[in-house]
Amino acid sequence: MSYQSKLWFQRIARELKIVDKEFLRTITVATLRPAIRSRLSDRVEEASRRGEDLQDPATWLDLVLIDAVVSLENIDGAAIRVAVLVTTRDRHALNELGLVKSQNFRAVRSALGIQRHWVILLDSVAPPSQEQLVDSLYEQIDQPGECTLIDLRS
């Protein structure tokens, strides 16, 4: 994953006012730890061995492949909470999509109140315009499926 692409998406999501502020305001390590440790203990142990800061909520979100959480209204006006992972590599996108589709990741999302998880594939040199991003996200929110790969490369 390109760290710059992750930051780009987070900045654009803030500008578009789609960041789920309620989720960010209420999420804590105390909430994340039991939801993630019970289903993905191997990922937690690996992070601990690498010396990652397990007192930082961002570390826990990284463990479950979440770069951002957005809230989008579908065509019926219902707000849907979506976890987003941003990547710039094809192979990683497919591998990560497989992970987020797993039963363990689904259980973590459910415990955190997240309805969907999207993997967004970007071109790090030429990211999409804000308009293209918005169109893609709102097109996808009305589609069935909990986990999806959204390819936004030109």
Rank of each mutant, 00 (worst) to 15 (best):
H92W: 11
V69A: 03
V125W: 10
R33D: 15
K101I: 01
A47F: 02
V86P: 13
C147Y: 03
L63S: 06
Y138A: 09
R39T: 06
K17R: 11
L24S: 08
I12H: 07
A83V: 01
V64K: 01
V70P: 15
D42P: 07
L24K: 04
I66K: 11
E73V: 12
N74W: 09
N95R: 12
M1R: 11
S154N: 11
T28I: 04
L54T: 00
V82F: 05
H92C: 09
R25D: 07
L137T: 14
L99E: 09
A93I: 10
R109I: 08
I66E: 06
F105P: 00
V86S: 10
P127A: 02
S102Q: 06
L40R: 04
A13L: 10
V64P: 04
I114V: 12
R153G: 08
I18F: 11
V84R: 13
L40K: 05
L97M: 07
S5Q: 14
E73R: 14
A83R: 05
P34K: 05
L61K: 12
W60K: 07
M1I: 08
A107P: 08
W60R: 06
W118K: 05
C147W: 06
I75E: 14
Q103H: 12
L97K: 02
S102F: 00
P127I: 00
G51Q: 07
T26G: 10
H92E: 15
R81Q: 06
E22Y: 03
L112A: 00
E52D: 09
R91G: 08
W8S: 01
L85A: 09
